[in-house]
Write a protein that binds this DNA or RNA. Structure first.
Lengths: 199, 199, 199, 199
DNA sequence: TATGAATGAGCTTTCATTCAT
DNA sequence: AATGAATGAAAGCTCATTCAT
């Protein structure tokens, strides 16, 4: 039933998806939906919770092996991320496009999930900095921004990959694109290389 | 009047913002709103159009000087982008959080704006590749993804910067973070350097 | 099961008391309720019937002894009435407050019960008139009104007694109040004494 | 519009009267009803308030002349009461049959009105006792019950008079019935005459 | 027999949208 | 030109009522 709800929400948005639609899509009657979940808000929250937990779990599972070098770990996480978003496009839409715009309550759940992933990336970048012998304190203020940039580019690529009707890139291809995009820069950055405007 | 509408939409979302709210916020009566714009859809479209045009113009103006080296041009564009999103937070919210989730019609407008900016970035990356003497054809398939990654990280950083209640980074600081994040990678990439999984 | 229903109806009213509430209060499942009584209407009717019959029986039992003088007979009936309404407050509420307002069908049952009691009182007043040697025909038109007044004051006193949280008067005290209130008047009336406006 | 609502509530009861019915009866559309009164509860409350105020005013106006002897004053009040209930049968039904059974909120308003009238009657009875040279303290405990009995009989007679399809008694006739019913008893009572069971 | 699970129907409420002034 | 007043249409939610076990 949550599947139907996620599908409806993902395709029409929170307000536009009526409970009738959802019930019909689930192949049940409206009151039954209300028997399981007390209100539309609760239903939406349940959807977000489930999708957020699933996505978080996928990424955490992908990055479980802490013995790998950071780039391999990041690569694994990205592959897991793109594989999951490709496998659950409606869930991804709900998380990325619908929930944040429908009020603080819903946005908060997604923000929490995002914060968890950002924290993961931040920790990973910290390891890179440490490996590079970089003064960690010097970096701290910047790392949060970098993590947000990395997560944002991954989100954008997930949308991009999902939006392709044909010739859709695989999760690994997308992950490779992102690694190519950022890794050299990050590694260099951790060694102190910085880009500065010429004047 | 559009200002009031953008404010209401940005703060409450498309469905949650009632025409009463908007009219009141604009200090006019509801029928007057309908006299200027035929329907709520039209009003929202007008908002999106205006905000998208303004943001596009800001970025294009920032990158007008084609004689600059690509990194300087990108830097200018990013500064313009972050300055604009910081100066028009409601507009940015409407474009980034509300419009895409409220139906194809609205999403299309934003997608068009995004495509324009992606095209700009793509062209810029093409110049980099050319400067690096890289075989352009070899890159083409990848460049679109890179451009989307870059745009996505910029969007994410705009949100991140706007969400900071205090110690909010300036547009230049944010742009610097992003340049640091990606430029070394992009430059190297154009010279053929690639990240590959070790196994 | 009817007890639970009467309790629920008395406390929440006919519409506000849901079948779920009633079934739960009765400690059985909803379908079982429907097996015994075909519908909510039937259930309510059964409640009213039972309560009306019980109240009528109590009053009739109290006034069974026709050999007593009329005032003693009335006194006995009132004691029985107040004792019953105090012992079955929910039933009394259902009869007095809920049923009359919920449609002709239900009101009819209560009206029937009331008519029966009014008839009893009317007969009693007839005996008083006869004893007083009063021309019965002269009275007839008025007696019905007097009986209604007497019944109404009894109903009002029942509510009043039940509504007292503390220092609640006993059935006999309440009956005495009512006898004091009306008996001298009735007796005089039957002898021809009448109150008339001075102008 | 309140007229239509009072009519609908009086005829069908609070729950059974749908907002559609009320709007149609008022000759307007449902949203208009909501523009004037925020909710069904508010609408019902407004009806009760208005009817209670009107009835209270009628009775108070009838008993305004404090220079009259108590029986005349009571007579005037009763005439006003019966005239009003006969002129506004739906309002009377709402006050007497619907409101008390539909929740504490509504019952409270009616209880307040009733308390006001009971207080009026109580004061009146106090004057009678005083005129009779009766020890007032001795009476106090009983007077409240007497006042409730008197009010209850008036209510009952109002229903009875309104329920007559033909040969309906006038307000004065009804008031006379009630005065006959109670006045001799009350006057005697105030002089110390009491009815007591023979054993 | 007795019930968990399910639903048809209807009610309150809201909102985009339009007259009539 | 500009608005107070009004409405059609639809959504969320509840409840009496019934299957299928």
């Amino acid at each position: 039933m949550l599947d139907a709800a996620v599908g409806a929400f993902g395709r029409h948005g929170y307000r536009a998806a009526s409970m009738d639609d959802i019930a019909e899509a689930a192949g049940v009657s409206k009151p039954l939906v209300y028997q399981y979940l007390k209100s539309k808000d609760d239903l939406f929250t349940a959807c977000i919770d489930r999708e957020a937990a699933a996505l978080t779990k996928a990424v955490l599972d992908g990055t479980r092996d802490q013995t790998l070098p950071p780039d391999q770990q990041l690569w694994n996480g990205l592959c897991a991320f793109f594989a999951h978003t490709a496998a659950h496009p409606d869930g991804w839409t709900v998380l990325h496009q619908q929930a944040p715009g429908e009020g603080e309550t819903f946005a908060g759940v997604v923000a929490g999930m995002r914060a968890e992933i950002v924290a993961l990336v931040t920790a990973l970048l910290g390891r890179v900095a440490q490996d590079a012998g970089c003064d960690e304190g010097l970096m701290d203020r910047e790392v949060s921004g970098l993590a947000h940039a990395l997560v944002g580019s991954a989100e954008s690529l997930a949308d991009w990959a999902n939006s392709r009707e044909e010739d859709r890139p695989s999760a690994k291809e997308t992950a490779a694109t992102l690694m190519n995009f950022c890794w050299a820069g990050l590694e260099g950055l951790m060694k102190g290389a910085r880009w500065t405007p010429s004047r």
